[in-house]
Design a protein around this nucleic acid. Structure first.
Lengths: 338, 338
DNA sequence: TTGTAGGCGTTATCAT
DNA sequence: ATGATAACGCCTACAA
């Protein structure tokens, strides 16, 4: 029952009702003892009034909001869904609520998310930016609360950081395609001015080198990390390189678009063109043919990031920044089955 | 620059620095006028100190946290992703931060989400439960802050509510299958003790009736609203009803599982078995064949729910509860192409 | 064991 | 126009 006297019950309401001071109420409610008699009266009053402590007052007083935030590009990308899921679980476990920032990869939005730490509504932030500008670095440096970055950071940034070497992952993809005898291996990349775009491009070149395949700029197309963009890019590539027999896509969304484009263009997968995606999202199991993809441990990265943050907000307040990493793993499916 | 004197800058710090009272600082910072001279001094001090108002203090004082929450079953389901996306957008637009509760369809978790409104860390809640127990109703009734329910509510509950008639949607699916000449139309449903499970079951029966097809209990299988469960159910159904030629799945996840099972069982889609899903999620465009699905406007429902909540937290504080609904829409794709 | 009182950082009221 | 002061609800010395 809410109190009849207007607003919700407060320790003051309870104190009056129980005939004790607010201090006693607070103590009892926080299990700090008291005379049995007092305890009983307070608990009775609290129950009758349906008392629930005001989280805002607690936060203000305690200097801790009990909230952390996760900023990502777009929850529409299954990679982030996987991350959010695990982050949510770890956060809840540790008693934190989770806030979501969808930035749309907009630089301003990302910076806003970082800056918003300053108002202390959130105790810490996990951020996964695909571009890292000087502004980002400045803002990261002057962040007033712990930040964990998912994604590769330049040397010398003293921040908790969860990374995965997607350059190696990309090379694995190319090696896999070369391994099943493909010679004309195309690459559908995202924007080259993004961290993943850059790394995967390097990895693609590495992979070609290792497989002793010539580098041919004709084989590379750029677009956004999205399905529609992937389909368009695939069509452009097919037009230009009719004898394509392998295709590495910089993420699963692009790969899904590519599969569609290939089908529309009458190419069989994997017989004519074998395809490899990246991120090993849930999508990879749903397409037809199912998609071979290089997993980058997104769920695991989310989990690790959350654990780092939670630790730093508790025990590990003053520890050195930690850089942890996850190993890419190729999961072979029908799209490269010989 | 943060102030050197320990903690972050407060209006107090600024006041000292500018040589005015905290009241003046507050006024200037909130644009409530002041002598040009004073304004200048305060603004200068605030900038130099890198002042950012403490959100917790503001919330406590103002009685508003600027936060709303969304509670859903599992962010892994694309239906909720679509909702979250729009909710996030509307919330941000209105100046609210968004908190996420993943309940795993656990009754206790859902109730906890509802009860957590009591601590005022959140101003309102959007909840999308698939089961509505008496406990839910009790808790909804005594909720201390505005709640918007996405999903059908029993009569007589005075709450903002966004619904879609998935019974009609299910009937549309069956009608569509019958319309392309299918006679043995199976149904893979979720649990019958859920609101959607119940409604879709009714709709399935409605559809058969309208198409003058006999009701045959053999044609119905139950499972969870998940892909793996859908695959299992499909196999059971195929075993029992070899002459199946149409299949309605209670959501896209089930349908994705069914498509896989059908392929493994050597049935061609749509030639042997035509398939219709429900929710028209992003998955429907990604499968092969692409999936005909009955859209239930999940993005739109999320948007409407957020708008209702935001309105009630502002202008519409005292208006009557509103029930808005969205119309199902069948999107035909390859899985039912004749 | 208990109560009084101060303070967390704001905003808003009320004199001046 | 400005400053002192009282809340908002909670926790916690400190004093009794």
């Amino acid at each position: 029952m809410a109190s009849a006297d207007g607003g919700p019950a407060t320790i003051e309401t309870i104190a009056r009702r129980a005939g004790v001071s607010i201090a006693s109420v607070s103590r009892v409610l926080n299990g700090l003892g008291g005379r049995p008699d007092t305890v009983r009266k307070v608990q009775a009053a609290a129950t009758e009034l349906g008392y629930v402590p005001n989280a805002m007052a607690r936060s203000l007083r305690g200097g801790r909001s009990g909230q952390i935030a996760f900023a990502m590009e777009d929850i529409g990308n299954p990679v982030y869904v996987a991350m959010v899921r695990r982050i949510q679980a770890v956060a809840r476990e540790a008693g934190f609520r989770l806030l979501l920032h969808s930035t749309g990869a907009d630089r301003e939005e990302e910076l806003r998310a970082l800056r918003s730490l300053a108002d202390r509504h959130t105790e810490g932030l996990i951020i996964s930016p695909i571009r890292i500008t000087q502004d980002h670095l400045d803002e990261l440096r002057r962040a007033v609360a712990p930040v964990v970055v998912i994604g590769s950071l330049p040397e010398g940034i003293a921040l908790d950081n969860v990374r995965v070497d997607s350059r190696v992952g990309a090379a694995m993809a190319v090696a896999h395609l070369a391994g099943i005898g493909r010679r004309r291996i195309g690459f559908l990349n995202g924007p080259l001015d993004t961290v993943p775009g850059q790394a995967r491009h390097q990895g693609y070149l590495d992979g070609l080198g290792t497989a002793d395949l010539p580098v041919d700029e004709e084989l590379v197309e750029f677009g956004e990390f999205r399905t529609d963009s992937g389909a368009d890019a695939a069509l452009r590539l097919l037009e230009r390189v009719p004898d394509l027999d392998g295709l590495f896509c910089a993420n699963d969304l692009i790969a899904v678009g590519a599969l569609r484009a290939l089908r529309e263009a009458g190419r069989r997968v994997p017989d004519d063109v074998a395809v490899v995606g990246m991120d090993d999202t849930e999508l990879a199991r749903v397409t037809w043919p199912t998609l071979t993809s290089v997993g980058l441990g997104s769920a695991r990265r989310g989990e690790l990031a959350a654990e780092l943050l939670v630790d730093r907000l508790g025990e590990g307040r003053d520890r050195e920044p930690r850089w942890v990493s996850v190993t890419p793993e190729l999961v072979a499916r029908e799209s490269t089955r010989s």
